[in-house]
């Protein structure tokens, strides 16, 4: 089973350009039409389960606004 991941979008940097929305292979990113960033853009947000932490959104983000997390591959030692 694919690893689970998640993203954090920094509203200071995000300009709502949608490139991450277009690039996301899982189609789990969309613009948050309910909120505006301090600069007045609708920021990107995770809208659904299914993020694998593949970081493609971060690869295409022109504003380095996205931090990507993924389940640790390390085996539990306990």
């Amino acid at each position: 089973m694919a690893l689970k991941g998640t993203i954090e979008v920094n509203h200071k940097y995000c300009k709502g350009c949608s490139l991450c929305v277009e690039a996301c292979p899982q189609n789990v990113i969309a613009l948050d039409m309910e909120h505006l960033t301090p600069k007045g853009y609708h920021p990107a947000m995770l809208i659904d389960e299914g993020c694998t932490g593949c970081a493609i959104c971060a690869v295409v983000c022109p504003d380095a606004a996205i931090t990507v997390y993924r389940e640790s591959r390390k085996k539990k030692t306990k």
Binding site: K4, G5, T6, N10, Y13, G53, A55, A58, V59, A64, A65, I66, T67, V68, Y69, R70, E71, S72, R73, K74
Partner: peptide, 14 residues
Amino acid sequence: MIEMEVVYSRPESF
């Protein structure tokens, strides 16, 4: 507990 690791973050040279 699921541990999450950072796979991408803003570069320090920024």
